[in-house]
Write a protein that binds this DNA or RNA. Structure first.
Lengths: 163, 163
DNA sequence: CTTATATACATGTATATACATGCTTAATGA
DNA sequence: TCATTAAGCATGTATATACATGTATATAAG
């Protein structure tokens, strides 16, 4: 592979950088988690459900900033694999209460050993300070307002030409 | 967006935080870009191709840390919309050279006006310092090695900045 | 030149994600 | 009570992403 990629392309776009960083981190963690047969998003769900037994689908989505339908489907996948159970809540059967099955708890335990290696690698390579800064930056992002309402009013004007 | 229910769940997982931050940022930018009929990833590609006319698919993938097949398909979508053209490179017809069409350039210009609003919102809400820290954190991530199971330590940040 | 190998891209499959919409259950109002 | 509205989840559709594999072209071996 001749390193022809001499293209600098210093993009100022925070979104593009965030997504690129997300891909890199995800692939790093997935490289370890693969041995346990789970992906990074799946591990995140197992871990969240394990840590907060009894929450509903909606609460999970809210906590992780996942769109409702995305939360539904990602959890559904884990249910299909037998790691998670969903039961309607007694006093409000619209809600589905989440919990790990025994298989789910075991999978989480196994995956966590691998997860720790990924986490350690990041800590090693970045150093404690940079890792703290990284986490702080992500917390800052989580505080952003997601409205973007200024732009949404007149949705079909101007250049929305057909494709 | 109302109760927010203040679910704590302070996860130490860098990957989970990165992905969550990515979703939040993406939705913020998408909220603006929607008026131009492009998504955040699509805008990133248009912008990259516009800034580096004549690069190949492989170079694009490398620069953005996109898997080769992902780069192929994302660009294919833009080609289908008439924004991008792919032509085999003269002296190596395995490679496909990318460039924007006139429609692509116009779409990029329109979308950039909206992109600027998203970027400004982030700058306003985070402040200059936090935004710099955010970008620096993303640069740090881009320098991580993709080691893990089996392989390849040639991640090649491709961000150009002297890191 | 011909075959083997490597490179660059394309394709099949699976998951992750979001928006629009539909369905079921709760809560409200007349 | 019954119609209306709201809340919570499910489903249809489209895009984003990666891994495994296939195909075409180029390069190296013989």
């Amino acid at each position: 592979m001749s390193d022809e990629s001499n293209v600098p392309f210093e993009s100022p776009c925070v979104c593009m950088r965030a997504r690129k960083a997300g891909r890199i981190i995800t692939q790093l963690y997935d490289g370890y988690l693969r041995q346990a047969g789970v992906t990074s998003p799946q591990y995140a769900l197992l871990r969240y459900i394990g840590a907060t037994e009894g929450v509903s689908l909606g609460e999970l989505g809210h906590a992780l900033c996942l769109e409702q339908s995305t939360a539904t489907r990602n959890v559904e996948l884990l249910k299909g694999k037998g790691y998670v159970s969903l039961v309607p809540k007694a006093d409000d059967r619209r809600k589905k209460i989440l919990s790990l099955t025994d298989a789910g708890r075991e999978k989480l335990a196994n995956a966590t050993l691998l997860w720790q290696k990924a986490q350690d690698q990041v800590r090693m390579e970045l150093g404690e300070a940079a890792m703290e800064a990284l986490v702080q930056a992500f917390k800052d992002v989580a505080a952003l307002t997601k409205a973007a309402a200024g732009g949404r009013a007149d949705v079909n004007g101007t250049d929305g030409e057909s494709s």
